[in-house]
């Protein structure tokens, strides 16, 4: 029975627009979610249902209008600088667009080295660590000197994943990680993610509109519908009306 490491409690997010006549649009309402260490939680829902927003809130990239996010029991909004930095490193995000995550003007190597510098690894270890990383995500050394626009979608997504893994996070929020990829590349990516989870005990919050992907990857799943998360027992589809 693994411990709960991330806990979203009663999250609500609403957008207000207009100066005089205010219009309030509620995306999330009283949403709660629990993620245990080393497990995959699949979050499904149609586009526009707010699942990406929920993912960002849980990763600390956006603030909700209400509710709390707890990391190992402590609210991330009450953390001091050092604790929040630690949280940031432990909860990472992989985005949908493979080419977008990496700076188009930097070679893959530079992007990797920036992160290694950030975590304070001494320069003499950079080469070794980068090599280990490439092996883990199934890339060869020759891509290091290339820039994102010279690589395929699959390669870019792997490089982005590799960069995230350099931080050795506890949880990775996977926001539609394979929807922009070809079928065979998607298959490769999903298997790789599963293997990595087995080796590194990383937890995944998998956000996807594709039920098949969630069924393949997730241990537990929930459906985000009208701003609330409805748990799917045993990954049954019956409760989730929007999914085909």
């Amino acid at each position: 029975m693994s411990a709960v490491c991330l806990n979203a409690r009663s999250i609500s997010k609403a957008y207000e627009s207009g100066l005089i006549f205010k219009r309030r649009r509620s995306i999330l309402e009283d949403v709660s979610l629990e993620l245990k260490s080393g497990e995959t939680f699949g979050l499904v829902g149609d586009s526009g249902s707010g699942k990406s927003t929920l993912g960002r809130i849980i990763a600390g990239l956006e603030r909700p209008t209400g509710g709390d996010v707890l990391f190992h029991g402590k609210s991330i909004y009450e953390m001091n600088g050092a604790e929040f930095s630690k949280f940031r490193r432990s909860v990472q995000t992989l985005f949908q667009d493979p080419e977008g995550s990496l700076n188009p003007r930097k070679s893959i190597e530079r992007s990797m080295h920036d992160v290694l510098r950030l975590i304070g690894l001494p320069m003499r270890d950079w080469r070794r660590r980068t090599s280990e990383m490439l092996q883990m995500v199934g890339l060869t050394e020759e891509i290091l000197c290339r820039r994102p626009d010279q690589l395929s979608g699959g390669q870019n997504q792997r490089a982005a994943l590799g960069r995230v893994l350099l931080l050795e996070p506890e949880v990775i929020v996977l926001d539609e990680p394979t929807s922009a990829l070809d079928i065979s590349v998607q298959a490769q990516m999903l298997h790789m993610l599963k293997d990595l989870q087995r080796d590194l005990s990383t937890g995944y919050l998998l956000i996807s509109h594709d039920m098949d992907v969630v069924k393949f990857m997730a241990d537990r799943a929930g459906c985000l519908e009208q701003g609330r998360v409805i748990p799917l027992d045993g990954k049954s589809i019956a409760l989730c009306s929007e999914i085909r």
Partner: peptide, 12 residues
């Protein structure tokens, strides 16, 4: 752009 968001997320 997404890579700036990625950088923020990585903690830069």
């Amino acid at each position: 752009m997404k890579f700036v968001e990625s950088a923020r997320s990585l903690g830069f």
